[in-house]
Simulated scan of single mutants.
Amino acid sequence: MALAALSLQISLAQAQSEGTGPGGQGAGQGESFRPGIYEEPEENLPADVGELFDDRGVLTPKGALIMEPSLSFSHSSANRVAIEAFTIVPAIAVGLIDVREIRRDTFILAGTFRYGITSRLEFETRIPYVRRSDDVRSRQLLEASSDDVIIDSNGNGLGDIEAALHYQLNIPDPGDPYFIANLRAKSRTGTDVFEVDRELVMQDDLIVGERLMEQPTGSGFWAIEPSITAVYPTDPAVFFGNFSYTWNLERDVGGNIGEIDPGDFVGINFGMGFGINENTSFSLGYDHTVVFRTEQNGSVDQTEFDRIHVASLLLGFGHSFSPKANLNLALAIGVTEDAPDVQVTMRLPIRLF
């Protein structure tokens, strides 16, 4: 999901001896298999082509349980200028100009568990632990003081737990794409921004800002995300893409805030992966999410943009250490202002049985 971190698993696209299917002698697997329908020995773990997105492309074999610890780090920065003034001549403003430099670092340590209910249906749950720190440096340019105001805060704790179902819709003929239907639900188990205490920041007996006593670890809203994933194997590469819609459920926060209906998300991503050798793979991808405007008590803030675009370029690397363990690294580089500058994610899927 857009509130969470992203990965898509797909099989190595090395052709079988008769030139069919996306399986073959891929990443440490000695037996061929069709997408989602595994015929390799039970002890083998399906190989990946550099995990990039959250939505599944290779399903867990029937009766198998996979544990995937992961660690993600993201860094965001922004410079914002707020002007409350009037102009007397072009380029000269009289009033208050507030300049802010914002830095945010987020660490997410998560445990993901996937179980193959059938050879075409998989259940997944993800439990994250989040640590966030924010630093804001502010200066009011037209005030007498030349000192910067530093406002910092951090927080850590349980994040929003997620659960998902993935179902392979078809068993394709050789050379045809296959499709995965996904349904993901996100809770609000993390501490949200409405539950965090605040304090005023003073300078020279003036209120210059507001500081969160701690950073939230959750969004504060339930969300449901249906999506469809397409995977097209073609030797020696695999092409994949996903389209999703995230419905964020409205909530009555109470007090003087009232009812908040967060904006929904529309997301699309696509990419390509290919095997370098039997154990190593590489992938490229692009992810784009459109976030729509939030409503409060049935109305919208006219000063906000109608939509926000969050887009990233992704690079992935996968390596199979053994039939039961893979290592996956993913790098996301933000290409729009509202996307994180950089995000690095490491995953280690391990087949338990």
Rank of each mutant, 00 (worst) to 15 (best):
M1T: 14
A2M: 08
L8T: 15
L8F: 02
Q9P: 02
L12S: 11
Q14E: 08
S17E: 13
E18K: 08
G19Q: 06
Q25H: 12
Q29D: 15
F33C: 03
N44Q: 08
N44K: 05
V49G: 10
L59V: 08
K62F: 08
A64Y: 02
L65I: 10
E68F: 03
E68G: 01
V81Q: 09
I88N: 10
I97P: 01
A110D: 06
A110R: 12
G116D: 09
S119E: 15
P128R: 03
R132K: 11
L142R: 03
V149Y: 04
V149N: 06
N154M: 06
G157W: 11
G157D: 12
I161N: 07
N170T: 13
P172K: 08
G175E: 04
F179M: 12
L183H: 02
L200V: 15
G209R: 06
T217C: 07
F221S: 01
I224F: 15
T234W: 04
F240G: 09
Y245V: 13
W247F: 07
W247T: 01
R251E: 09
I257E: 12
G258R: 04
E259Y: 05
P262Q: 04
F265D: 13
I276R: 01
T280I: 00
S281T: 09
F282G: 00
V291W: 00
F292Q: 03
R293D: 11
Q296H: 02
G298K: 10
R307W: 00
S312A: 13
L314H: 02
L315M: 08
H319F: 01
L329D: 00
L331I: 13
I333G: 03
P340W: 03
P340T: 05
R347H: 11
R347A: 09
I350T: 05
I350M: 13
R351T: 07
F353M: 05
